[in-house]
Structures are given as structure tokens and as C-alpha cells.
Design a protein around this nucleic acid. Structure first.
Lengths: 345, 345
DNA sequence: GTTAGCACTCGTCAGGGTTGAGTGCTAAGC
DNA sequence: GCTTAGCACTCAACCCTGACGAGTGCTAAC
């Protein structure tokens, strides 16, 4: 980010008032209505200041005889220096909490609930990624006979993520043998991740050949699991975009929905976020995606158990109430983290 | 359905032409343009016939000096008596098939892929439900220690659906005992559904009390699984609605998207479908949902393995190309059935 | 430095006339 | 008796116009 143009006290106050007004009404705001709120100065004075703020690029004017609205840069200045975050109102808490009151069985359920809750709370499109479990370790495994030459692998991963996969058998094998192999493998692989498993010493014993073969398939499957987890992104709340005047243009709406429905694009977007600083706000073109030039993203991480983390956030109009949305995203993130942590024990 | 008003050959031909034209252009069609396609009669003759078709309710006129468009009833007549289903073109097959070429691991993955594939193939919103597995039987179960007073139940159900749930233990129990109990339970419950399990004879033995308690929890969980499965509905392709002129009105779009995003409403819709007859087409208000009065549904079932079935279909504008959509839904349904069947072995 | 006053700009909206697609009706033709 | 050419009529869509008003920039006075 470039060094922002410094603003004196009054210009800051005016910029803040413009953001507040425009966020509320969606209509470019003029000097007269500002003069009502900021009774200290006349509309003429404010007009002069507005002109300066336009010159330095914090405000834009759709046409000469229109009021001003904040530019991406103006919002950036607002978010960085002027915004007073608002507490999450009790009404919203009461709306969110019930979602997490019923304890769902699987992680995926929690994430889906989180998406719905956040969409409601922030009145925007919510985005939720699965908690990253890269290189996660095995807690337990089991083999169930499917047919003569197929067995179902059931993996319980650290964090109680359960994954299943059909494995091929090199020779007809009955359930007794499979159970024996499962017991043997359990003793060997518990606590290992894919990398650790590939460094295991040679297997010996009665069913060594079969066991070796299965182990290879298991390692391959775990690698696939690792890769898949990154791309799971849930979303909800597309309906929330529709009642906003800026999306009255169907063209624009279409572009945004296309991005939201295309998981690849969302993944790119979310991985571009720099989430080391608690909350990341990407305003308008800052996301680097032309389709989202009129949209902003507010993202944060949730932590579940020992530092396993996923991303959660919202995508909405640039004209969103940043002062409200940030805290709400954090609030839901905290709830999700707790729920996921609990589900993973 | 009421008895439709019978139509003579020429009226049928004209109605069919109106549907074809209107589906293609989205603009009410006039007698002159029909006279080009149906060169046998002059525009005046066609005009007389159009008047009759309007009188009996098969066509409607947005205003006096406009052309005609099919009413819900008109589409119903078309679909029931006039429509010639079109083969799924090779281009569409080539578009759908790759989705099912990579064999995904879980049922949920297949369903998601199916939703995406169908959304592409039918250029509408796709809807997919999980295969019903009501009263499904247990194939295998396992218990993994989580903490002193908690164990993770891993259930492999018939059809290789894997479900997990944390269970409470009445006393601290270690993995060895849990494994022993799991082995014992496996012997007892394999092949039983929830109902069968509740009729099991009293358990006796070393860990009888604990085992009884766990069994109760397992039965409760299976009942929950049964209920949940019905409500899982995936959708994709909301973007496809946006480029259709009838959804240029954001109001309308909003209502439709609200229904699509609300799983309860979708569930009600799908359960209302009468799917004994291969494919079910609900036109406009036939769905009984006011929000969807300008939409149609084309639904069918897919079969996976031994008669386990889910629902798959599309939701689109009433002005959809029924002759193309039906076969495409069936085509994807068949692919999904095959894929699910294979995944369930 | 601030502000009242004023001329100016430009989007929005309502009114009015024109256009053209499409109709219903009638009377003539086969 | 069915078909069709002709014609008057209807009405949405479009464009043009002028009034309106929100909002500006500039200037001069305080």
C-alpha cells in the first residue's frame, strides 16, 4: 500500500461523514446534507474541502452536478484511520448463537451452518473454507470388505475428520484377514502423516505383500485428501446482494455470482488474502479481480484446536458498513472456531 | 390434471410453433412470423386460430397489440402431447462425461459434480438430493477413543455411506476395551437397521452396561442419519438464470434465489414431485409456490445400486427448452446413478 | 479563513408525438 | 364454409423536449 495523502482534522471528519452517509443511503452525498450533520461549518466550506478530497482521489463524483462518494482509496483511508468499529449488537448475537447451539456431527455441517449464520449476520455473501489439515496425522484406520477384490478404507484423521476410499486388493481376501491387517497397520501408522508413512520400514509378516500394497494406496489417498481440503469453499447469501441498489444492474450481478459459484476463483481470491493481521479488508479493485471491482471482501481466520485454521469472511458491495461487518465476521469466526474445535475434540 | 381441451391438427401445429418460437426468442410471437414457418396458411388464418387458442387458455397476450406466448396450460399441452424430445447432442455429452471420468471418493463429491454438470448441460439451476437410505443397514462399525469419557463412533452403512458421531462414555474406558466392544457389537448388529437394533436381545458379558448404553446412542444416531439424508439438497447454476431476459427484473430473481438458497423450501418442492413416471415436469404455478410462478421444474430420479434413489433435476424459466432439458436431465441422472452405484459398490 | 450569494451544469422525470408490430373484423374469393 | 386480403385500430417502445432541482464552482464580502 502506498503512503496515503495525510488529511487534516476537518478533512478527516468530512470524509468520515461522507462514508457514513453514502453507506446508509447509497446516493452520492452533497455539501448541504453534510452541513446538517457537521453543523460546525457551512455548506460552502464543506464544498471547498470536498473539492480537495476529490483532487487527492479520496472522493469521486459521478457527474459534475452530483454529490460525492468515496473512492476505493477513500474507503481505504476510512478503514485504516477513521473507522470506529461497532460492537456486535445483541440482536445479531441472538440471531447467530442459535445456529451453533445445536451441535452438528461433522465439520462440513458446522461450516455450512457458519456460512448461513454469517450471511445473515453480515447481510452479504459469506465464504467459508474448511480448516486446513495439511499433513494431518492418522488416528485410526479400518478396512471393510466390499467385494473379493475391493476393500473400503475408513480413515479417522487427527481432528476426527473421517475419510473413506475404496482400495483394490491384489488377491481375494476375507474380512478376517482385512481386520488383522488393519490392526497391524494401526499399530504402525497411528500418529503419522503421509510423509511419515512413506518413510516406514519395510513390512514383514504373513500378509506383507498385501499390506505393502494397501499402504501405498493409503499414502496416495492421504495426499489427495490434503490437496482437496484446500479447495472446499462454501458460500451462502447470494440473495443478500439482490436488494442492494448497486446490483440493480444485472450485468454486474452476473459477474459477481459467476465468481462466487466458481470455486477456483474463490480459492484464488482467498489465498491472495494476507491474513496475518487478524482481519483483512480488500476494497474494490484491491482484490485484483476485475469482476469484483464494485465489491469488497472482509476476511479473517478461525482457529480450531491446535492452530488448525480456516478462512471465513464475506463478499459484499464496496458500500458495505465496514464498521459493523468486521466485528461480525470476527464474532462468527470465533464461534466457528469454538464449534470446530469442540467437534475435533 | 384436468382433461385438456382437444385441439385439431392445425391448432396443434400452431401451438407447437408458438412454443418453439417463443422459447427461442423470448418475445411474444405474432401471426406474421408464424406464417413464415407454417407457409401452408396465411397470417390471417393463423390469427383466427391464435384467437381460439387464447380463448381456451393455451396462449396469453401481454397486451392487445402484442403477439402470443404460451400459458402454463399451453406448455402443459405442449409437453404432454406435442413435444418431440431431442437427443442429447454429442457436444453436451462431451461436456458432461469428463465430470464423471475422475472417480471421486465420496457420495457427496459425486453429487456436487452432478450439480455442476447438470447446471452446465441444462443451462439452468440444478438440484440434486442425496440417495435416500432410509432404514439402511449397518455394514461395519468401529469405536475410536477421543478422551476418557468420549469415543468416536464410525459407522459404515450399507452402500458404503460413512457416518461419524461422538458418543459419551459412562466411565473412563481405554481403546482396548472399545475395540473389544466394537468387535462384539459388529457381530451383533451387522445387517440390521435402526429398527432391527432396537429389537436385539439383552446384552450380557463383561462390559454389558457400557455396551447397552452405547447401543442406545448408536440407535439414536442412526435415526438422526435417516432423517438428515432427506434434507441434503445441492444446487448449482444460479448464474444461468441471469442471462435470461425474464429475470432482468431483479425482484423476480430475488424471489427465485431465495427459494433456491433455502433448503427447506427446496425439500418441500422436491417431495411434492410425483416421480413414479420417469420424469416430472412442473410448469409455472403447478409447483404451487408463488415465488416460482415464472419457473418450471424438470425432475427425475436416479437409481443407485439396489433401488436406492435420489432426485435430480433443474429449475429454470418457464420458457425453457423442454424438449432438450428432459433428455439432458435423464442423461445426467443416468451418469450419477452409475457413479453412485459404483462408489457404493 | 469562512461564508452568503449566484450563475451554471446536468441527471431525472413527466408529457407528448411518432413509429411499428400486431391485432380483430369485414368482405371478397375459392 | 373455409380462407385470405385489406384496413382500421391498439398500444408498448422510443425519442424529443422542457421543467425541475440537487449540487457544484466561483466570487466577493465579512
Amino acid at each position: 500500500m502506498q503512503h496515503p495523502v495525510p488529511l487534516d482534522q476537518r478533512k478527516q471528519q468530512i470524509l468520515k461523514a461522507v462514508v457514513a452517509d453514502y453507506t446508509r443511503t447509497g446516493v452520492p452525498v452533497g455539501s448541504a446534507s453534510l452541513a446538517v450533520h457537521l453543523a460546525t461549518w457551512s455548506s460552502a466550506t464543506i464544498r471547498n474541502e470536498l473539492a480537495t478530497l476529490s483532487e487527492v482521489g479520496y472522493l469521486i463524483q459521478p457527474h459534475t452536478s452530483a454529490g460525492r462518494m468515496p473512492s476505493d482509496l477513500g474507503y481505504r483511508y476510512y478503514v485504516d484511520f477513521l473507522m470506529d468499529e461497532e460492537d456486535v449488537p445483541p440482536a445479531v448475537r441472538r440471531q447467530v448463537d442459535p445456529f451453533f447451539a445445536v451441535l452438528p456431527t461433522g465439520i462440513e455441517d458446522i461450516l455450512e451452518i457458519a456460512a448461513t449464520a454469517l450471511a445473515h449476520a453480515a447481510d452479504a455473501v459469506s465464504l467459508v473454507t474448511a480448516p486446513r489439515a495439511l499433513g494431518v496425522r492418522v488416528k485410526h484406520l479400518d478396512l471393510v470388505k466390499l467385494s473379493d477384490l475391493q476393500a473400503l478404507l475408513v480413515l479417522v484423521l487427527e481432528g476426527n475428520l473421517v475419510r473413506q476410499q475404496a482400495l483394490n486388493l491384489t488377491a481375494p481376501t476375507d474380512q478376517g484377514v482385512l481386520s488383522a491387517i488393519a490392526t497391524g497397520l494401526n499399530a504402525a501408522v497411528v500418529g503419522l502423516n503421509a510423509a511419515g508413512m512413506s518413510r516406514l520400514p519395510e513390512v514383514v509378516g504373513l500378509h506383507a505383500a498385501l499390506e505393502r500394497d494397501l499402504l501405498t494406496q493409503i499414502i496416495a489417498f492421504m495426499t489427495v485428501c490434503d490437496a482437496q481440503q484446500d479447495t472446499l469453499i462454501l458460500h451462502d447469501g447470494v440473495r443478500n446482494l439482490l436488494h442492494q441498489p448497486e446490483f440493480g444492474d444485472v450485468e454486474l450481478l452476473q459477474q459477481v455470482i459467476e465468481v462466487v459459484e466458481e470455486e477456483r476463483m474463490l480459492a484464488a481470491l482467498i489465498s491472495a488474502a494476507d491474513l496475518d493481521h487478524g482481519i483483512q479488508i480488500m476494497i474494490g479493485r484491491e482484490s485484483g479481480m476485475a469482476e469484483l471491482s464494485r465489491c469488497s471482501l472482509v476476511l479473517t481466520t478461525y482457529r480450531a484446536g491446535a492452530e488448525r485454521r480456516g478462512t471465513i469472511g464475506v463478499l459484499g458491495s464496496t458500500r458495505m458498513a465496514y464498521a459493523q461487518v468486521g466485528p461480525r465476521v470476527r464474532y462468527v469466526a470465533q464461534r466457528v472456531g469454538r464449534a470446530v474445535g469442540r467437534a475435533l475434540s
